[in-house]
């Protein structure tokens, strides 16, 4: 019988999922510009959603993706629904499907994440422009995309490494 504190416990995985998404959301909204020279912010939230949606799909159903996007909208002051829609569509289109799930090699994961990122930001740009009734600012979106592409290999590598070492899955897998 599994103990609640067992590393293989699904509760631990669920806690990890919630904590990582929460931290990503808070970092996304935190006043990092206070720190000198730190002005570029990758989309940590999308990284967390993408990894969990592929490693543990049960933890990232559409309603969770929607709720996370909506929370980000509210925290960042964006019109409600923009990031909710962007994450929902992009994750549903580009998540790994089938019995094999997410590959354990980095390149296909990076490619799939890049496509997810581009689609999510494209939708966010269109939806945000519609909500603002004028063209949204493209520059921060491009910076976010570049920063995310540069930063994503690190968490993806850690996740894949952990999956390989544990044989059957991610935390608690």
């Amino acid at each position: 019988m599994r103990k609640p504190t067992d590393r293989n416990s699904p509760w631990l995985a669920a806690t990890g999922c919630i904590a990582s998404v929460l931290v990503a959301l808070i970092i996304q909204a935190s006043p990092t510009r206070l720190v000198d020279g730190l002005t570029i912010m990758p989309t940590w939230t999308l990284m967390a959603i993408f990894l969990w949606a592929n490693v543990r799909p049960h933890f990232m159903p559409p309603i969770a993706v929607f709720a996370i996007g909506l929370t980000q909208d509210l925290l960042t002051g964006a019109p409600m629904g923009v990031w909710a829609l962007a994450y929902l569509v992009s994750i549903s289109v580009f998540r790994f499907r089938g019995e094999d799930g997410m590959p354990r090699d980095l390149p296909p994961v990076l490619l799939r994440f890049g496509a997810t990122l581009l689609l999510a930001h494209g939708i966010a740009f269109a939806a945000g422009s519609f909500a603002l009734e004028q063209m949204a600012d493209l520059q921060p979106l491009v910076i976010e995309i570049v920063a995310s592409i540069l930063m994503f290999p690190l968490p993806a590598y850690l996740v894949l490494r952990r999956r390989r070492s544990r044989g059957s899955g991610f935390i608690g897998g």
Partner: peptide, 24 residues
Amino acid sequence: STRHDGDQGVRFSRTLFIALLVVS
């Protein structure tokens, strides 16, 4: 991945997905 814990075949519910798109 060799998932045998029921992760395979996880699909987004089409009805819920469309409903969330409409809400968004």
